[in-house]
């Protein structure tokens, strides 16, 4: 579903992403791990078509800048950016109308209820706390019922209820056949449901680890620290 081939992103002389190859199938939850500055957000923004790059990125076989690819994609940015003068409800309406969604109201209502935003529907974007903004951002990304969802640090700033619901939502999306790419520093939060993990170090994918690759008693955190603290071998896919 999400396919990245030989992708390189440079900022002047700095190589933020170096020849990245990555593939996420339907119903697969891919986790992107890596220390600060490893290039995770750059990779995510490139997949979403927010940055230019060298290489090929496709969503369901369509180049990521095409209208068809965008229709399939949902994105939760690292920092929620809401429109300060729109209410929570209007954010959903804006997305619904811009994406030409039909009968979206019920789905929107369910999302607002799930993330405890029912009583905040008339609050303006600027009046919301960081956590609330993050919840609205998640609702906006999920309203068009995308086939591929990309989330950059989605749990940061959420309250315990929000974290629980988002984790449950992620699992439901995966079960429904959605391809998911989630960048996070909270390894524990994805431990239950992950299928494949890409560990990035200094702009490169240092290790691709499938759940079946784990030895008995070995956790994802063990794999991560093994790679990032210098004991692992590079394994570019």
């Amino acid at each position: 579903m999400i396919d990245v081939q030989n992708m390189t992103k440079k900022y002047g002389k700095l190589v933020a992403n170096d020849n990245i190859n990555l593939s996420i199938g339907r119903g697969e939850l891919a986790v992107l791990l890596g220390p600060n500055g490893a290039g995770k957000s750059t990779l995510i923004k490139s997949i979403c078509g927010l940055l230019r790059f060298q290489g090929t990125i496709t969503i369901d076989g369509r180049e990521n800048h095409t209208v068809e690819a965008k229709r399939l994609l949902g994105y939760v940015p690292e920092f929620p950016v809401l429109y300060p003068m729109l209410t929570v409800e209007e954010h959903l309406e804006f997305i619904a109308k811009a994406y030409r969604l039909k009968n979206w109201e019920e789905k929107g209502e369910a999302l607002l209820h799930r993330f405890e935003l029912d009583d905040k529907r008339l609050k303006l974007g600027k009046e919301l706390s960081k956590g609330m903004q993050q919840k609205v951002s998640v609702c906006c990304a999920l309203l068009p019922q995308p086939q591929a969802v990309i989330m950059d640090e989605p749990l940061v700033g959420l309250d315990p209820h929000g974290i629980r619901e988002l984790k449950a939502t992620i699992k439901e999306l995966r079960d429904r056949g959605c391809a998911l790419l989630i960048s996070t520093h909270m390894i524990d939060s994805v431990e239950e449901n992950w299928d494949v993990t890409y560990i990035m170090v200094k702009g490169r994918i240092a290790r691709v680890c499938r759940r079946t690759d784990l030895a008995a008693g070995q956790s994802l955190a063990d794999v991560y620290f093994n790679i990032t603290e210098g004991n692992g071998q590079e394994d570019t896919p």
Binding site: C48, V81, Y99
Partner: peptide
Amino acid sequence: YSHYIYLIPEN
């Protein structure tokens, strides 16, 4: 400066 205009599936 925000992502919406880039992601909305329109011309």
